[in-house]
């Protein structure tokens, strides 16, 4: 599984970083970016989905 942040949609709500800090970080402006090139380590798939389901801007994209 891979995750992506659509930076044209991300407005810095920081939900992904709060819910899955193993997968996402945020820069000084609060904009999210993926860690590990977006590759979701085994066992963290549920956290990736949780981040996707809690982004108010629909900015997290999951590629199975």
């Amino acid at each position: 599984m891979r995750v992506k942040v659509d930076t044209s949609k991300c407005q810095g709500h920081n939900r992904c970083y709060a819910l899955a800090p193993e997968l996402f970080d945020v820069d000084d402006l609060g904009t999210a970016f993926v860690l590990n090139d977006g590759v979701v380590p085994d066992g963290l798939e549920a956290k990736a989905r949780l981040a996707e389901k809690n982004c108010p801007e629909y900015a997290i994209v999951i590629e199975d």
Partner: peptide, 20 residues
């Protein structure tokens, strides 16, 4: 509630700066 895309802090470019 697991899935919660609420917009309490607004949506779009004016998202509440103080949300954290």
């Amino acid at each position: 509630r697991e899935e919660n895309r609420h917009s309490a802090f607004g949506l779009g470019i004016h998202r509440c700066m103080g949300s954290n």
